[in-house]
Design a protein around this nucleic acid. Sequence first.
RNA 1: GGGGCUGUGGCUCAGAUGGAUAGAGCAAGCGCCUCCUAAGCGCUAGGUCGGCGGUUCGAAUCCGCCCAGUCCCGCCA
Length: 589
Amino acid sequence: MIRFLATAVSKAIQRAAEAGQLGSLTPDQSVQITPVIQIPNDTRYGDYACPTALSLKKLSGMAPAQIAQTLCRHLHLPNIETSVAGAGFINFRLRDPFLAERLQELLSLGPQFGKTSAPQPERILLEFVSANPTGPLHVGHGRWAAVGSTVADLLRWTGHQVDCEFYINDAGNQMQILGRSLAVRVKQLQGEDIPLPEEAYHGTYLIDVAQRLLDQVKAGIRPLPTTLEEYTDFAYAEMLAGQKRTLQQLRTAFDHWFSERRLHTPDPETGLSAIQHSLQELQERGFLYRAKAPRGEEPKPDAEEALYFKTQEFGDDKDRVVQKADGSVTYLAADIAYHRDKVRRGYQRLINILGSDHHGYIGRLQAAVGAFSLDVKLEILIGQFVKLFKTDPETGEKVEVRMSKRSGNFVSLNDLIEDPEIGVGVDAARWFLLSTSMDSPINFDLDLAVKQTFDNPVVYVHYSHARCCTLLRRLQEEEKVELTEKVSLDETAKLPYTEPEERTLLLRLLALPDELIAAAEERAPQKIIRYTEAIAADFNKFYDNCRILPLLQEDPALARARIQLVQATRQVLFNLLTGILRLSAPESM
RNA sequence: GGGGCUGUGGCUCAGAUGGAUAGAGCAAGCGCCUCCUAAGCGCUAGGUCGGCGGUUCGAAUCCGCCCAGUCCCGCCA
């Protein structure tokens, strides 16, 4: 709808400019203007409004109200009433035949309603979560999982092709530490009195893993590991499987699981690893140099020569080392190889969702993509963390609980979902993780009645959906009403509605495609949360004010029109709940 | 010291890219079931949108400075 009105206004501006009716605004300039269409907060003004005439004042040298009048004359919108109000707003009011047509469209498209095609469809690779396989996922990972999966769905609904990818950080010495930690836990279970080294993973989850390992040994499934490598492999497999389970539980699906190790493994044909290939290519393209310090910096007295990547050319604040003085490669080298791989897989856009602690990495990642392709766009979404608080029983003050895998002091994603004390279930967990803009941290007080607080809005929406279902079921089964999808107008081309709640609800439901487009373009799932809540609120007001059963005999036309609103509400809520937010949609409560 | 993000009713947060009278949910108070689910609806109360200045017809939104919170600034991964 918004896109439709925006193009209509855009064309009107062009036509008016070509006719020389917009003062000093030239036709060339007129093409550049992208009109703003918004929903006024006071519906008396209209269903949609366009303030663009106001901003054209300078370019045209005309009074905004006059511009608006001119544009109205060039707008040819059947069944939409246009008017000029205030300082120069163009207000649009959708007439009943138009609304009926849209409602008809909604009902016949059903589960497909809301899908749009993109002006420029893209093949997109969306990377998110990408945790180390060294422990259970924590609540913070859950945030990226919920946001990532929803952004992916939003992009798909708006006409893009999206693959979701999890980059498994399974290389580096953290994996050895994991193996060593497990070995100690096993020995402890066998009765040896040895302490866990300081740098080990202290979380109690490794005790469970150790127990499972011993159980398997006892059952003769496998021998007790004899090398560190075997311990590492067992722990790795267990951790990864656990993470996959949790993500699946959170209804987050990945198309690819990309192992970092793969980048370090030499290709049997060339004998070179993907990392070595990448560095070679960077070398050939002139992006590497050997020095004792990055360009523009004085080397420290004891500095040795290392291999630097010119990340500065891509907006980084200084060049970065890819190969250390001792010949080993840095973590960035793996990232370079990884992003080279992404580029070579033919995507037009890469989107990475990262935590705010990674904001300093934007420059080097842009370099890792930019050095290999000028066309592939890399978009990095930085999100703030989930912070946990506890209320100190003595002082009554809120204290932050530090999450750390090393110390074992963290709330896992599983806890949030199913812990008897703080667990809120999958639906409320997803809702909670999606409801706040990524730019804001989520503050989560473990002692407050968070369970109810986050449960409540989900229940509200579920309740509305269930009300629709129950009502429709009752109409069919008890009242023997045949549901129809055919929308009809009366002899004066009016919809039979009588109450303001009906129109408000209808307009809200018809906005689904617009809402999905806006949320997808801004990568802002929280907008869908707000929108879903708004539908539920509009529906409950309608439900309270506009009864149906008493009308079945008295006013069948109105009853039917209201039933269609219920059908439409059920459909839109269903599409949002199951298709975008990945929540359940209960049919009764 | 430099940078990212944040600062909006008592609490948790929205605010559609600068628009018409700043919104929800919890918490508080009052009212509404003879009537399709009261897990609901209506009403009341609560705000100098962190502060100061600027840009213009118009600012919570853009710019500058300041204050506060938070995260980052490795030849770690």
